[in-house]
Simulated assay, not measured.
Amino acid sequence: MVAVVRTRVARTRFAMGLAVALFAAGVGPVAHAASIETIAKQAILVDITSNTVLFEKSPDQRMAPSSMSKIMTMYMVFDAIKEGRLTLDSTLPVSERAWRMQGSKMFVELHNNIKVDDLIKGVIVQSGNDACIVFAEGLAGSESAFAERMNKRARELGLKDTNLTNATGWPDPNHYMTARDLAILAEHLIKDFPEYYHYYSIREFKYHGINQGNRNPLLYRGMDVDGMKTGHTEAGGYGLTASAEREGRRLILVVNGLPNMQARADESARLIEWGFREFATYALFKAGETVDQVPLWLGAQDTVPVTVPEDMKVTMARADRSGMKVSLVSNAPVAAPVKKGDVVGKVVVSAPGFPGKEFPVVAAQDVEKLGFVGRALAAAKFLIFGAS
């Protein structure tokens, strides 16, 4: 049972309309435990279970995402499958441009028609640039047209500082993302296409007689990491977007600008383990559960029960849990009539060392306004006894 402290705020000072802080909207709170450093040039660690940023370093700095931008390529592919424009058994032709593509390769055969299922594994497991070109040309006719579609979708997903010029992450000064945008994109892919996310945990794939292992080093460390994508270019350094799920919590990490493969593996593992060890997610109220009663003015009943429209969870440093305070703030008494679902206040969660988080509370039922006689009696009561 969560103890809730009820607080009134004068109507003239209280500004309603603050919804649950969503990380995907770029306004998630940052919860800091004991400080941690990283040699990565850009980094962000997010608990997407409660939309809380646990750690960040230059998260909004433009960077070369390298092959990590292939997450957007796969988002477009999975979206095409979901919309019925592709199936896993569909085949796509290999152009000479795709066949000649350099860098990491799946080793597609010139003029062959390759199954979408194999191409997906070629992109995710083998980081195949050639497979990315096959997808781009198959879905949009050309890689440049595919890039335009990716940028349009990026804006729709809320990626505020992303511009993609190719499907592979090939070096280009105009091909950039931020660590925050990559984390948002990773979250969208996981949540929008859960039926296809399993591809990211495949450890090896053999095609054209060549067996290649997944480049994600954390898949082999037994630390609950189940995706996503590495990247490396001279401009960007060594990077990794990774996701791990443990005890009902899912963390997403993006690091970039690391000096070598070993540093990428070790820094990523250290940051993820720190996130799980130092922080915990606490469930306070379930969606629809009554939080408290809010007083009404001139209502058919004196109070209205209030609830939260979504599960209410907060992530904070374990050391801060003992000082957590949960307060219901409203401009009570709320004037009737009230409709079910009307926002009538907010729950504020605070603790020493925790920046605070707010959740809207809504009326759990309709309450009509008193009739003329009832209002007259209420007014007389107020004149005689004052506000209660």
Rank of each mutant, 00 (worst) to 15 (best):
M1V: 10
V4D: 02
R8F: 13
V9H: 11
F14M: 13
L18A: 13
L18I: 13
A19K: 13
V20F: 08
A21Q: 15
F23W: 01
V30R: 12
A33K: 03
I36A: 11
I36E: 03
I39E: 12
I39C: 00
A40L: 04
A43D: 08
L45A: 05
I48V: 14
E56K: 14
K57L: 13
S58N: 15
P59E: 10
D60S: 12
D60E: 14
P65A: 10
M68A: 12
S69Q: 15
T73R: 00
T73G: 09
A80H: 09
I81S: 06
L86Q: 07
T91M: 10
P93A: 10
S95W: 01
R97Q: 13
Q102T: 14
G103V: 04
M106I: 08
L110G: 01
L110M: 10
H111D: 14
N112G: 07
K115E: 08
D118I: 05
L119M: 07
K121T: 07
K121G: 13
G122K: 02
V123G: 05
I124R: 06
G128A: 13
D130L: 07
A136W: 02
L139K: 10
G141P: 05
S142V: 10
S144K: 15
F146K: 05
A154Y: 03
L157F: 07
D161F: 06
D161P: 01
N166M: 11
A167F: 05
A167K: 08
G169C: 04
W170N: 09
D172Y: 07
N174P: 00
M177F: 10
T178C: 06
R180M: 03
H188C: 10
K191M: 11
R203N: 11
Y207P: 00
Q212Y: 03
N214F: 09
P217S: 09
L218Q: 01
D224E: 14
G227H: 05
T230V: 08
E234V: 14
G237R: 06
L240W: 03
L240F: 02
S243A: 14
A244F: 01
E245Q: 12
R246W: 06
R246T: 08
G248E: 11
L251A: 06
V255E: 06
G257H: 08
N260Y: 10
E267A: 02
A269P: 02
R270L: 04
F279P: 04
A280H: 08
L284M: 12
F285C: 11
G288P: 11
E289I: 07
P295C: 06
L296K: 12
W297G: 01
Q301I: 14
D302R: 15
V304G: 02
V304K: 02
V306W: 00
D311A: 11
M312R: 04
K313F: 10
V314F: 03
T315W: 04
A319S: 15
S322F: 03
K325D: 13
L328K: 09
V334G: 01
A335H: 12
V338Y: 03
G345E: 09
K346V: 13
A351V: 09
G353C: 03
P355W: 02
E358W: 00
E358L: 00
F359S: 01
P360L: 08
V362Y: 03
V362F: 01
Q365K: 15
L370G: 02
A376T: 13
A376C: 00
L377I: 14
K381Q: 15
S388W: 11
